[in-house]
């Protein structure tokens, strides 16, 4: 069962090449990125006229994962099944695209990578039935990935722009700007400068449209480290704004705790101020 039933009869009568086959997969995740995809609404119907959506659990179709042109993966590698599925789907996909923090950096569940002590027995009454990998890791740690779309969750616009480009057979230009630039383009007053709110915007990739600063909140870093992230200087400035070393560590070790730039800065502050 696919969503491609809206093609017009005259198109079907021509000898057109087969529609590109698209799959949306889920590993360890909250489904939020699939929902961002689903939230495209009318655009999704339009897409179904141009491509065959063969597998997309949140939307319904659960067709076989073979002969795929574009595969989107949500979620991190967290179990043996995730691992096997990714190895298999990589071989079956022309373009493999990760969507969201989990698939791209390991996600918020990668916080368990940093945990010490008996995590499972402190959380579950019967820990012996839980079977998972030692670490929550990004898809790119196992197989080559053609395109990474960051975000927690990704936005519909990110997906649309990527899709259009991939349907043309080309990788889209990669966004590298920081959230600060988007704040300034939107005319949002800097929350750090006006209200002394610690904000990860200066080291975080834009893509959300500077959502949190537009609501008077500091950036949480959902879209992961931007290009050239000066985390060390920013962390020192957080200290100047009154955050304790433990609080600074938690700012970086959050949604993208397994992204190297954030992980390293967070770890530097875990044991106290690294500059003292």
């Amino acid at each position: 069962m696919t969503m491609s039933g809206s093609a017009r009869p005259e198109e079907n009568s021509k000898t057109t090449p087969p529609k590109p086959r698209i799959a949306v997969l889920k590993l360890a995740s909250c489904d939020g990125c699939q929902l961002a995809f689903l939230g495209l609404g009318d655009k999704l119907l339009e897409l179904s006229g141009q491509a065959e959506i063969v597998h997309f659990a949140e939307a319904g179709p659960l067709g076989p994962l073979t002969g795929l042109d574009i595969t989107f993966i949500e979620g991190s590698l967290s179990t043996r099944e995730d691992h096997d599925m990714v190895l298999s789907v990589r071989k079956e996909s022309r373009f493999l695209v990760t969507i969201g923090a989990c698939a791209t950096s390991g996600g918020i569940q990668a916080l368990r990578n940093l945990a010490s002590g008996p995590l499972l027995s402190s959380l579950y009454p019967s820990p012996e039935v839980i079977d998972f990998l030692d670490q929550s890791t990004p898809v790119a740690s196992l197989v080559p990935v053609d395109l990474e779309l960051w975000g927690c969750p990704v936005t519909g616009d990110q997906i649309l722009l990527a899709l259009r480009s991939l349907l043309f057979g080309a990788l889209p230009p990669v966004q590298t700007d920081k959230v600060c630039l988007e704040c300034k383009r939107r005319g949002i007053a800097c929350v750090t400068v006006t209200k002394q709110i610690p904000c990860l915007g200066p080291v975080t990739l834009t893509g959300c449209g500077a959502l949190c600063p537009s609501f008077d909140r500091g950036c949480y870093g959902c879209f992961g480290p931007a290009e050239n992230p000066e985390t060390s200087s920013l962390a020192r400035s957080f200290s100047g704004l009154g955050l304790t070393p433990a609080e600074i560590a938690r700012r970086f070790l959050f949604i993208n705790s397994n992204a190297p730039a954030f992980r390293e800065e967070g770890r530097r502050w875990q044991g106290g101020d690294p500059h003292e």
Binding site: K178, C180, L181, K184, P202, V203, S232, S233
Partner: peptide, 13 residues
């Protein structure tokens, strides 16, 4: 450079 965030706030304002 040790202090600069390379964030572009200065050029934007």
């Amino acid at each position: 450079a040790a202090r600069c965030l390379s964030c572009g706030n200065c050029t934007s304002v």
